[in-house]
């Protein structure tokens, strides 16, 4: 567990920032948002944090996946990033919801990438040259994961035990599955990357639930300043998410 920090590093560093920068509260802020970095009311902020009622997580519903697709990805990402003594795995971190939500947005449509024809297979060093969008690649890959599990174990991927699921994933990783429309290893690498994104991105995206991914790594999340600790030995700092910056 993270040490209880009596000195709230947030307010300390903000106060020091104002001091270091040589500005007084409400004074001239040149080219910055210094004024808005000062909590308007420290007490109000503290009170908000100690809200008793726990609200439901309305984020945990599907925007893109079918329920079956969701279950396969939920199981597969848990094998890539499993729960262990260090803390939760992909499932408990909400990684599959994160992936679902990402596929529903511009990332799923390759919205900011060059998707113009003509399409030619290229050298590996020339990068991705496919015509399929990420959401289409996921559709195909999930179906092929199911087909491959059926072919090898006569069961759905979600019904396999952990070692069997690993074997299926390894076949994708090493291009040992016969799929022509997508690159199995390309899909596996994408799944691995997006799993880590779901584990460690700001909780606002639906993964890294309760900042538990960050806590495992002793990553402090979004802090305004480290000027007080930058030249000191390592010390744990309680993480904050971007949500905490919405109070000012």
């Amino acid at each position: 567990m993270v040490e209880e920090n009596k000195e709230n590093p947030e307010s300390v560093s903000r106060r020091n920032f104002i001091r270091n920068a040589g500005f007084t509260v409400g004074g001239l802020a040149v080219g910055g948002i210094i004024g808005s970095l000062i909590p308007r009311n420290q007490k109000e902020t503290t009170d908000t944090k100690s809200t008793k009622t726990k609200t439901e997580d309305f984020n945990q519903a599907l925007m893109y996946f079918t329920p079956e697709q969701f279950k396969v990805i939920d199981a597969a990402t848990e094998r890539i990033f499993p729960e262990d003594d260090h803390g939760p795995g992909a499932k408990a971190l909400g990684v599959a919801y994160f992936i679902d939500h990402q596929l529903a947005g511009y990332w799923g449509f390759n919205g900011r990438e060059y998707m113009q024809a003509p399409f030619y297979p290229g050298e590996k060093v020339q990068g991705f040259q496919g015509r399929l969008k990420r959401r289409e690649i996921f559709d195909i890959a999930i179906r092929e994961m199911q087909n491959h599990s059926m072919a090898v174990y006569k069961k759905d991927f979600t019904e396999l035990n952990g070692d069997e699921q690993d074997a299926i994933l390894k076949d994708f990783e090493e291009d040992k599955v016969n799929v022509t429309t997508i690159s199995p290893s390309g899909f596996f690498q994408m799944l691995r990357s997006v799993t880590l994104e779901g584990a460690y991105s700001d909780p606002l995206y639906g993964g890294n639930l309760n900042m538990d991914g960050w806590k495992m790594k002793n990553y402090p999340g979004s802090q305004m300043a480290y000027s007080d600790i930058i030249d000191k030995e390592f010390k744990k700092i309680a993480p904050q998410s971007l949500k905490s910056h919405m109070n000012h």
């Binding site: 500005f23 040149v30 080219g31 910055g32 210094i34 305004m224 000027s227």
Partner: peptide
């Protein structure tokens, strides 16, 4: 440290927040 340049532009000191490359600076 806080600095005023020859054009009269004053800027604040770095806070070592760890978000420079690929990011814009919220402190200037």
């Amino acid at each position: 440290e806080s600095y005023k340049n020859p054009d009269g532009i004053q800027r604040a000191a770095c806070q070592y927040c760890g978000y420079c490359e690929r990011f814009g600076c919220e402190y200037g």
